[in-house]
Nucleic acid binder design. Structure first.
Lengths: 253, 253
DNA sequence: CAGGTGCGTTGCATTAGTTGCAATGCTCGT
DNA sequence: ACGAGCATTGCAACTAATGCAACGCACCTG
């Protein structure tokens, strides 16, 4: 809606790929160098962009600080965290918490496995939306129209042979997940990693977040992992209860 | 430098304080509501701002994802992480990694204490710059002029009776730290928490990061913590070596 | 060491893009 | 059902962003 701001913000994902110099930024934005310079300067003043010693630009520190504050404003996270820790203490595996926002699902909290073999994932990283167990739960709860529209515009990368191959299969999976009230990902993202996930609901019953337990085959088989399902669901329900009991989406200050 | 972008970016820290509606944003920016609306819309399109169900705006998910990528581009972090984990395994206490950027010091990595009593801190949070041991190391290495200028414009909040009270005291402390090559914070931030820190240097000898071990009094006394100093310094030196050996600030793609 | 290339930077005239206003639409509370 | 409060839209006025061309500077190169 605002061209100038639009251009300036387009610089951020560009720099997320790696440092770039003025010329590169100008080219990618398709604007004159002087224009790019002014935009970069403004971003710099706000600390979103940093100029390293070789004069190239990269993302700045304040961005990290802002994201931090953004997460602290998510009250589900605050409420859920102790529950996640407890679950991790009980089963030892990696525990994730994820939310859906604007066509993306991303992890907002994580408790690391206590086993030596750990899976790769990072808080803030958008998850593989077509296969992750938490993603299925979050998308399954979307209103029909939105769900269809989203499933349509998604890509369905075949991470493994068990990845969800296309939109119809995905929608079927979502229906199943919605009905049973939990979800799994059995090697659909990485061949040797399985997950079980359960939804966290707000007072109105809508799914506000999802949590999962993940473990590699070498530690426990998929069957063994599934035996944790009741525990995961109980934890999720406990979080739901606490979340609904408190002020729902209230101001945090 | 660019008014429109400047205004748009000013919205982010504002929303970091908590959700706000259009009117509040317009007021704080001192612009007309329609202007604020357009700026918010642009931020929204880029996912930096999210509109929650009650129509108020808060920081968006992509901000978190961007910050994530920003951190992954910091190669000190990549290199240091395994060392931090190993140090944590050896001593059991909380280990922090911090960098200086644009008048701020912030934590970019953390390994949690294995003791039940943990200190509060979060990756991405700017640190108490006048008292934290890592901050002293990073600032001590700044060129004279910059150091004086910065020390001058800082606030010196008295978190505890042992906090650095003012600029002259701070500069003296920095001189001491620079000379001895390590730093401490003995209850200067929180009465019962002590830290020892050591600098990580690049190939040119400049301090590029600093790491620290922190523990509360109830777990170990300050004296006991100080016995860890050689270990902390050795770890920092190991990281320095690896960092200098590799491509210094090279492109990451 | 002179000349050249590639980059970032600056001042300025043009014009496109942003602004604030006023009017409209919408939602909620009474 | 009515009104208050907020978000939203279209539009004309004008400010502020744009691209150009020229300059400065550092680094190669012959």
């Amino acid at each position: 809606m605002s061209q100038t701001v639009d251009r300036a913000l387009s610089i951020l994902p560009l720099l997320a790929e790696g440092p770039a110099d003025l010329g590169q930024v100008a080219d990618r934005l398709d604007v004159h160098k002087s224009t790019a310079l002014r935009l970069l300067r403004t971003l710099h003043e706000h600390g979103l962009v940093y100029r390293q010693s070789d004069q190239r630009y990269r993302l700045g520190a304040r961005l990290i600080a802002l994201a931090q504050e953004a997460m602290e404003n998510l009250d589900i996270r605050e409420i859920a965290h102790p529950h996640l820790v407890r679950l991790n203490e009980q089963c030892g595996h990696t525990v994730h918490l994820a939310v859906y926002e604007e066509s993306e699902v991303l992890y907002i909290d994580k408790v690391e496995s206590r086993y030596p073999v750990r899976m790769y994932s990072r808080i803030g990283k958008p998850v593989a939306i077509t296969v992750a167990a938490v993603a299925k739960l979050l998308l399954a709860d979307l209103p029909e129209g939105e769900r269809r529209a989203l499933s349509d515009k998604l890509d369905y990368p075949m991470y493994t042979s068990r990845s969800t191959p296309n939109a119809p299969a995905f929608l079927r999976e979502l229906d199943k997940v919605r009905e049973q009230g939990w979800a799994t990902d059995l090697g659909g993202h990485e061949e040797s990693i399985n997950c079980v996930a359960a939804p966290i609901r707000g007072a109105d019953g809508r799914v506000v977040a999802a949590m999962s337990v993940s473990a590699p085959n070498v530690v426990v088989t998929a069957e063994e992992l599934l035996t944790l399902l009741p525990l995961v669901r109980r934890t999720a329900d406990a979080i739901s209860g606490e979340y609904s009991g408190r002020t729902p989406v209230k101001d945090s200050r």
